[in-house]
Simulated assay, not measured.
Amino acid sequence: MIIDSHQHFWIFDPARDTWMTDNSIRRNFLPADLAPVLEANGVNGCVAVQADQSEAETDFLLQLAAEDDFIKGVVGWVDLRSPNVTERLAHFSQYPLLKGVRHIVQGEPDKEFLLREDFGRGIAALKQFDLAYDILIYPHQLPAAVAFAKKFPEQRFVVDHLAKPDFETGELKGWEQHIRALGAMPHVHCKLSGMVTEADLQNWQQEDFIPFLNVALEAFGPGRLMFGSDWPVCLMAASYPQVKQIVTDYIATLSAAEQAQIMGGNAAAFYKLI
């Protein structure tokens, strides 16, 4: 089974979605748009990940997942800094399709946001509800992410988009050190996703990603990596087949079992989709 571990849906709102500066994604993207794309690419299901920091976004994604069974799980948003975070998590735990939560930490000016005491209390509450947490950061936030992951050794974490290294320049220094530190912790996983939009949008080549993929594979091994398309954000730079091919070509020399893990088995186990 092939599972896309990372994609988004939205009803475009120009007042809210100011980060969408590329015309290719400034429109609605809903399950009816993705279903034929997944079918054409042999993908059996997906995980819908929040793109807006509101409980309304979580409700929206859960409703879509309830209506379309190819959406196998949802990574929503709850204010993990809130004093009543446990109450809000309890509310959403009534929906079995909620598999995890995410905060857009990459947008926080504090490079040590992950280490905030109030945020940490929210993270500590996730285990009670058996929810995963997606780490969305930029490379300058990686040192805090390493310390963060060490603080919560029993929490399931996954790093989105390889922590967005600079594929355009190919600079590995710094990023590699911290990715290897995260990979040394068995409760931390990593998504092979979001690469094309961190490269030269118009002129990227598959070879641009190989040094970074080599580090990720060595750091996490085939048992803790998962394919994700980042559709429809990826459309700014590549088609769905192109994004998928970057990963399938890279892992082609691995065993069939290892390829199956990366292309779906790991996501199913990590998010408890089955």
Rank of each mutant, 00 (worst) to 15 (best):
G265A: 11
I3S: 05
A35W: 01
Q128L: 10
K244R: 15
L172E: 07
H8E: 01
M236Q: 14
G45V: 10
I274D: 14
G45K: 13
S193P: 07
P153K: 12
R180I: 04
P31F: 03
K127F: 00
L254N: 11
N214R: 12
Q206T: 09
F113A: 02
D130G: 02
I104E: 04
F70K: 08
K99A: 04
D249G: 00
I11W: 00
I179K: 00
D130L: 02
L126T: 02
T18L: 09
P36M: 06
F209Q: 03
A184F: 12
H140W: 09
G183W: 01
T21V: 15
V243W: 02
E57W: 13
D208R: 13
Q259C: 10
L80F: 01
A184R: 14
A145L: 07
L97Q: 10
A15S: 13
G265Q: 08
L217Y: 03
D52F: 13
V233M: 07
E258W: 06
A35V: 03
I179L: 15
P165D: 07
E207I: 06
I2W: 11
S239A: 10
F92H: 05
A35K: 09
A252P: 00
M263K: 05
G73E: 05
D13H: 05
A199G: 10
L201E: 01
H140E: 14
M20A: 15
V105W: 08
K244M: 13
V196C: 02
G183N: 06
I262C: 10
G194Q: 01
L114S: 01
V158M: 11
P222I: 08
V78F: 10
G264A: 06
I11S: 07
V243I: 11
L38N: 06
V85R: 04
D160E: 12
V37E: 11
L273S: 12
W77S: 06
G107T: 06
E55K: 08
K151C: 11
S93I: 02
